[in-house]
Amino acid sequence: MNRRVKEGTYKGKKFNAICHFFGYQARGSLPSKFDCDYAYVLGHVCYHILAAGLNGYMATITNLRNPVNKWRCGAAPITAMMTVRRWSQNPGTASIGKPAIHPATVDLKGKAYELLRQNATKFLLDDIYRNPGPLQFDGPGADSKAVTLCVEDQDYMGRIKKLQEYLDKIRTIVKPGCSQEVLKAALSVMASVTEVLSVMSSSPINGQSSL
């Protein structure tokens, strides 16, 4: 830097070195093919979010256990993932609301945890490797994915689409001209579902009130 200043090739501001700890980056392994595809698609979704003029949205990808061409891309508002955590400084004082993200806890009844519980002894005593060599970007092992992605059913947008199909089917059945019995059954069921969903969406989660 001093040499460039003397030669006149550098005319910028004074350079000050800043130390930074890169321990986590240095210990991290190379990204797998899935990691690369996932990051690339997230960036592509972010481009469409910006192009649409949206703000406060997070890029989402579901159906990850299937090939890339079957992934479902979308954008979710950050506020939809938040609640208001209530707390007070002193007993008897009015509580103050503070936005917070919904906690993501381990599902002890989920398929991934059940698989871990069933194979806990094998994992302790046996050598179980899904990919015994280095990361592969081509060939038979290139498309290997985490077990949690393969056993869990996290196709959120797929479920939304399935729900929409059910609602469309109800519209074709319950319409002017249907019998009184069909109309009565539909009203009873929909009233119950609406009541249950209203309670679930408005009830506090882990002591937090929803927005």
Rank of each mutant, 00 (worst) to 15 (best):
M1E: 08
M1R: 08
V5Q: 15
V5I: 15
Y10W: 09
G12E: 08
A17K: 14
A17I: 06
I18C: 05
Y24K: 13
Y24H: 08
Q25C: 07
G28R: 13
S32M: 02
S32F: 04
D35C: 05
C36K: 11
Y38E: 02
A39L: 10
Y40C: 08
G43L: 07
L50Y: 09
G53K: 08
G53F: 07
L54I: 09
G56C: 06
T60G: 00
N63L: 00
L64F: 01
N66Q: 15
K70D: 12
A76W: 02
T79R: 09
M81Y: 03
T83Q: 10
G92W: 09
I96L: 11
K98P: 00
A100T: 11
D107C: 07
D107L: 02
K109F: 12
G110W: 01
K111R: 12
E114R: 15
N119H: 11
K122P: 01
K122L: 14
L124M: 13
R130D: 11
R130W: 11
N131Y: 02
D143R: 04
V147T: 11
T148N: 03
E152V: 00
Q154E: 03
G158V: 01
I160K: 04
Y166P: 00
K169R: 12
I173K: 12
V174I: 15
P176G: 02
S179C: 05
S179V: 01
V182Q: 08
L183H: 07
V189W: 03
A191Q: 12
S192D: 08
S192T: 10
V193G: 01
E195F: 03
L197I: 04
S198A: 12
M200F: 07
M200E: 14
M200Q: 11
I205D: 07
N206Q: 12
G207Q: 03
Q208G: 00
S209K: 13
S210A: 12
L211M: 09
